[in-house]
Design a protein around this nucleic acid. Structure first.
Length: 813
RNA sequence: GCGAACGUGGCGGAAUUGGUAUACGCGCAGGACUUAGGAUCCUGUGGGGCAACCCGUCCGGGUUCGAGUCCCGGCGUUCGCACCA
């Protein structure tokens, strides 16, 4: 016994890490691979803290899948990279006083070490970092493609501004109106920003979600995107107001007869025109006050509504009556037309507003049991029950029908038309920051905003030490004259560079296109390579990116497709969302101080044990609470397999005959593990392997072929371990170049089966019969059971339910 | 408020079309081997009862020969979006 080596993870893992590198085990020939399979996982942001357990969980799950696919005969390309630009790096760099250009490479080195030590099957020869000039040159190129197509434009927009940090904040960084970092009340500033016209694509982005030929995605992710896109069907209606026309969007054109006033957003361009003399001062004060509020607290819906009348009126085209025009901050400039027709009878917000300011409330929809005259104690908002009232010739129509009829009338009378409205906004990509790719635009007094010619890319981000933002709202880059002033590409006169950098989400919106082509310096992505490897066969990632990253990537892909540069509209054929690993019920984050560093676990238990443990914790697609209490289980499991391998290599084992019971379990396990892995049901796949191992140990079986296949099935979870076992079993090539074990349908059927015997649905025992026993045989066997006999005594059997192979139920009474 | 997911032993979690609830693992208890063991191996482990049996998958109803699974109504937890007209 003692001649067998003990399992020492650190040695085994170091050995195979080196071997994989030296033998280029994980590399795939991107031009000649016979069965391309692009296995993508979300590239990490290389933080100073290193990978945490949550990252490792996600990467391991994707890696297990890639390794499994490879053993099934696919040429798996599994790249990795670093999403290293962005405000996180910059803030952290400022905090510790190290330049991000210095900090990031350091972090990447650490991440690379961790990703290697976890045993990921990464194609390191295609690694990329978004901060490399060879990468962001093409991010800038991408901007130019959008600009050329008229999909990039500049407009003024409100942003959250923190006067202490002297920076623009994303909406997510504003908590209850204050800066999440320093607590200062956030101001609104209006800045010129670059936007991408993603809203032009809203309809297609929505439609493809249901096109299963293009997209097979986790249901939860599809749903999140649908909600984000927020399609509403309704009508745009125009109201005459003196010489002006106010357009509103409504989902309830059927209620137009009940529109008793209009409300504009305070920022609406017609506010100044429609304000009457007496109201001017008060209106201006209100507009100023609304403007000072941050976007986040303004969008919180549960506070009391406020507003002010402009003093002018508009004509309701349905009733012909003059109705007052108000402004209120519950109407948002960036949704719809920035103006609404208020129907207090049938909209909760309008009802609250009308009640507060004593504006008329008219009922135009009445459900069963109510009449045109019944007073409204609250807004009646149901569309699918109720008929129109107080609506002229439309009275009596069900609301839904009224909607169609009134829309038709609006169109013939030129008062409006049916319209589909999306919730999605255009994508603001400007950041008044330093750590990002400069937007490749040059401003010229004569020529305007001129794109940097493609041959002049990249616009290199200069190495500057004072990258801290200041109060001007202008990027720190503007302070560097030698970079800032450049000749206009069109006329040669002195121009000025755009000083904003682009959003990090732009970096990550195309990285999957770059991986297979990472060695090409003269093109963003190679046509042949891209056609061969994309769209992506499998993308596994977190649902925290369900909307932003995944939507932006789809948009960019669609734009490039329309430009004739890609042969597909949708980049990710399948997407699976993994679960989140939490600690004591809370998401891991450094601010909560509950981040778990996987390094300690890997050095104590080994990467293979830790991987297996993480995959065994619970369903991969659900995640769970991290605890280290059960990690010895997977370790013991690997030790047992190690011992089986030791026994299998012993000459005595060779001729051992495999009992039928074991044979059946073996083939059942192969079937089950293969099926479970394909569905990412890793925890149950591991459980099945454990069951097989337990049986082999019980039965003292160590048949080498069987043990070999067992090791193959463990390989995706414990790759170093499996390689070592495979070698000990006499193989000289990588286990990942072996073929996934096949199962024999004839051998998964047990010789005898257990039938459950019930009386009135209660289980009273079981009988074991031959596989092809008929009903009579089962009934006879059941009649021998004491427990059944007792239950049937003195009772009339009214019915016998027999489910072949499963159960027999005697219904008595 | 809207949308979604979930609720099973002491714990993490399993359960084809509805068909032996608690697979697998942790923990725990007892035993073996040991100078010792926190190593390893064996046995046991939902609750109650001497037993026959009874009760058990968040709660309450229902459908069914049979419900963790399906239906209706609650409660709770988590996540996403939130004044979207």
């Amino acid at each position: 016994m003692s001649e067998h080596p003990a399992y020492t993870p650190s040695e085994v893992e170091a050995k195979w890490r080196d071997r994989w590198r030296d033998r280029r085990t994980n590399e795939v020939d991107l031009d000649r691979a016979p069965r391309p399979y692009y296995n993508l996982m979300m590239f990490p942001y290389p933080s100073a803290e290193g990978l945490h357990v949550g990252n490792l969980f996600a990467f391991t799950g994707a890696d297990v899948f890639g390794r499994f696919k490879r053993m099934q005969g696919w040429s798996v390309f599994q790249p990795i990279g670093f999403d290293a630009f962005g405000i996180h790096s910059e803030n952290f760099a400022m905090k510790i006083g190290v330049h991000p250009a210095e900090l990031i490479p350091r972090n990447i080195t650490n991440f690379t070490r961790q990703l290697t030590s976890m045993g990921g099957m990464f194609a390191w020869e295609h690694v990329l970092s978004t901060t490399d000039v060879t990468y962001y040159k093409w991010t800038q190129w991408l901007f130019l493609q959008l600009f050329k197509q008229g999909l990039a434009y500049k407009k003024k927009g409100s942003v959250n501004w923190c006067p202490t940090d002297k920076t623009v904040l994303a909406n997510e960084q504003v908590v209850a109106g204050a800066c999440e970092r320093c607590g200062t009340i956030v101001e609104q500033r209006v800045l010129e920003q670059w936007y991408f016209r993603i809203t032009d694509y809203a309809g297609r982005l929505l439609a493809n979600l249901d096109d299963h030929a293009k997209m097979d995605w986790s249901e939860s992710t599809v749903l999140a995107q649908k909600n984000w896109l927020g399609r509403s069907e309704g009508a745009e209606i125009r109201f005459a107001a003196g010489a002006s026309t106010i357009a509103v969007f409504t989902t309830r054109p059927d209620t137009v007869f009940g529109a008793t006033f209009l409300v504009l957003a305070p920022e609406h361009p017609l506010v100044a025109v429609l304000t009457t003399g007496g109201q001017r001062a008060a209106v201006e004060a209100y507009v100023a006050q609304a403007g000072a509020k941050d976007l986040v607290s303004r969008k919180v819906g549960d506070k009391e509504k406020s507003g002010i009348a402009l003093g002018s009126t508009a004509i309701n085209p349905a009733t012909g009556q003059a109705i007052p025009i108000w402004i209120a901050d519950y109407v948002l400039m960036d949704y719809g037309t920035g103006a609404i027709m208020a129907v207090p009878g049938h909209d909760e917000r309008d009802f609250a507003f009308a009640t507060r300011y004593q504006l008329p409330i008219v009922r135009v929809v009445a459900p069963e049991g109510e009449s045109a005259a019944s007073p409204l104690r609250e807004a009646f908002i149901e569309v699918d029950r109720g008929r129109l009232v107080n609506s002229g010739k439309y009275d009596g129509l069900p609301a839904l029908e009224g909607k169609r009829a009134i829309t038709r009338w609006l169109e013939t009378a030129s008062h409006g038309e049916g319209k589909v409205q999306f919730r999605l906004y255009d994508w603001c990509i400007s950041r008044q920051r330093y750590w990002g790719p400069p937007i490749p635009i040059i401003y010229c007094d004569d020529c305007g905003a001129v794109p940097v010619p493609e041959e002049q890319l990249p616009v290199v981000l200069p190495q500057i030490d004072d990258f801290r933002p200041d109060d001007s709202g202008i990027s720190p880059l503007a302070r560097h004259a030698e970079w800032y002033f450049v000749p206009c590409p069109t006329c040669g006169k002195q121009g000025r560079r755009e000083t904003d950098v682009s959003d990090t989400f732009l970096d990550s919106a195309w990285y999957f296109l770059r991986y297979p082509s990472s060695e090409f310096g003269d093109r963003a992505f190679d046509q042949a390579r891209t056609a061969r490897w994309l769209p992506i066969a499998s993308y596994i990632g977190g649902n925290e990116h369900a909307v932003l990253h995944l939507l932006y990537s789809r948009f960019i892909t669609m734009v490039l497709h329309d430009a004739g540069m890609l042969g597909f509209e949708e980049p990710f054929r399948t997407f699976r969302a993994h679960g989140l690993i939490v600690k004591d019920g809370a998401k891991m984050s450094k601010s909560k101080g509950n981040v778990i560093n996987p390094d300690d676990f890997i050095s104590k238990w080994g990467a293979d044990t830790f991987r297996t443990y993480l995959m065994f914790l619970g369903p991969f697609q659900e995640g769970g609470d991290f605890r280290d209490s059960g990690i010895s289980g997977p370790r013991r499991f690997l030790e047992k397999v190690w011992d089986l391998v030791s026994l299998a290599t012993h000459p005595d084992c060779r001729d051992a005959e495999i009992r039928h019971e074991i044979l059946v379990k073996w083939h059942q396990t192969k079937k089950r593990v293969g099926e479970e892995l394909a569905l990412l049901h890793y925890n149950t796949a591991i459980a099945a392997l454990m069951e097989l191992v337990n049986l082999l140990r019980e039965q003292n079986c160590c048949e080498p072929t069987l043990v070999g296949e067992l090791v193959q099935m463990i390989a995706p979870f414990a790759p170093h371990f499996a390689e070592e076992c495979w070698e000990r079993l006499g193989h000289t090539t990588s286990i990942f170049d072996s073929t996934w074990p096949a199962w024999d349908p004839a051998l998964i059927l047990e010789a005898s089966i257990t039938i459950v015997i019930q009386v009135n649905g209660k289980t009273r025992g079981t009988v074991t019969v031959g596989r092809d026993a008929d009903e009579a045989a089962v009934r006879a066997a059941a009649g021998q059971l004491d427990t059944v006999v007792r239950q049937l005594e003195g009772m009339a059997v009214r019915k016998v339910i027999y489910v072949p192979g499963r159960l027999m139920n005697f219904v008595v009474g």
